[in-house]
Design a protein around this nucleic acid. Structure first.
Lengths: 247, 247
DNA sequence: GCTTGATGCGCACGGCGTACGCCAGGATGA
DNA sequence: TCATCCTGGCGTACGCCGTGCGCATCAAGC
């Protein structure tokens, strides 16, 4: 047994080996992980770094979560809790309510852009309590609007898929921008040559690029997002009118 | 120097230390990586394992790709090349053409489900030649259908976002199913208790579960996917008719 | 006082991405 | 023909990672 561990000058000068933090717990671990992810990004999350932040060793965390994957499932469900879905109210205002929910989900993802690099791995965040709750509320919204249960389910899935897909590319873009450390305008400028090279031989793509150069990028993203939400709601609305028979 | 590496019986019986494989190249590396990803999943892809498969050392790969992230960007663009987008033809059939493209993208993702756990990290696959090409063809499709250039861009982004979002959850689900090694029915059965527990207090969600138990899961996924595509196309179509003024 | 269960920690293992320097062999130029 | 350089591959090593295991500590119950 190697008992000669640390070069402590005196045993009596022990640096308070015991608890000053409120002790480890699953909740504290999850919320500290989210903070770490928000401030330093996905690649900075290791069990060691998280442990250190909590004033604990890496392996201590394993008393509260089974492994890193489970931690990530918990973290994902936790941030889903930030989404806001309006109460199902007046059926006449279902579009506004659904739009609010979609925007709320988008801003959650943009607040926590690391989530998109993790969504492909967590198989069933589905079962998390927060996602469950939001699904229930969304279903209520669609059913109140007049969709039959089965179709409300499809409508909800279509909407969420769209929001997730659109924000995935937004978040990946913004993460990369953040890593570059540059201002968005400067960064786009430094990317210009590569983009123009790539768009050579693709006139339609190139036309889109040059057209967007004059507008504010953040505003373009928001408009594009809203455009898609509106089109999906338009498409869903055709199913509610009495003459619905598109398929 | 620890020279006791391999128990080679005789130095003279050296097993041909030189090339028999057609030599390393970026193309060979990328296509072997895709094969490895398809057969063993995302977590099996390491520079070492890939090198071994190619009959080379791990670090040899770095002569052809800058780092693992770049390899992944190459791999992602490569599989985008498998997507098929019809030629822009008769404007009257734009819906069928766009639907084909969407289904083609979906089946590409389902053939390579690991892609979804990597999409959040690659900032600009956008610039890859294959994705460029597909974007150009999709834009042509929408413009031929009657969308102005700017709106064609928004329409394309909405469609792709939907497909990516929907297939992300499908692929994550299928990956997890594959890892479980079980038949889908058995696996769903073993998941039942947890699902029912989670859906307690959420009657609408629970109703959806029980309703789907009688149908073929793969067929449900396909119908749900198609439903969303149809709704988006319905929504887009309202913008083409002369009386379009939804927003 | 003694036992027992929960909690945290140190250590160690095997694997990862990749920087670096060496070397063999082919291409090149005198 | 020979010296030189360039290219591509390899071995080694560094500093990370997730996590299994066994021990130390301590509060609670007898």
């Amino acid at each position: 047994m190697p008992a000669d561990k640390q070069p402590i000058p005196s045993v009596w000068a022990r640096p308070r080996p015991k608890r000053e933090q409120p002790a480890l717990s699953r909740d504290r671990i999850v919320s500290e992980a989210i903070q770490l992810l928000d401030t330093e990004g996905i690649e900075a999350l290791s069990m060691r770094s998280l442990g250190t932040r909590l004033g604990a060793g890496a392996t201590s965390l394993y008393r509260h979560v089974a492994n890193k994957d489970e931690l990530i499932e918990l973290v994902v469900d936790e941030v889903y809790g930030e989404m806001r879905v309006p109460d199902a109210g007046d059926p006449a205002h279902w579009r506004a309510a659904v739009t609010d929910a979609a925007r709320s989900l988008r801003s959650m993802v943009l607040r926590h852009p690391w989530i998109v690099s993790v969504l492909g791995q967590v198989g069933l965040a589905y079962l998390g309590p927060n996602l469950m709750r939001q699904s229930e509320r969304l279903l209520a919204l669609f059913q109140a609007a007049g969709f039959a249960p089965g179709e409300a389910d499809q409508a909800m899935k279509a909407l969420i898929a769209y929001v997730i897909g659109m924000t995935t590319s937004e978040a990946a873009y913004l993460s990369m921008l953040a890593r570059s450390g540059q201002n968005e305008q400067d960064w786009l400028e430094s990317l210009r040559p590569a983009a123009e090279q790539a768009a050579r031989d693709h006139p339609l793509v190139r036309h889109g690029y040059t057209e967007q150069l004059v507008k504010e990028p953040a505003q373009i993203r928001e408009e594009t997002f809203d455009y898609g939400v509106e089109r999906i709601l338009d498409g869903l609305e055709t199913r509610l009118s009495p003459k619905a028979a598109t398929r």
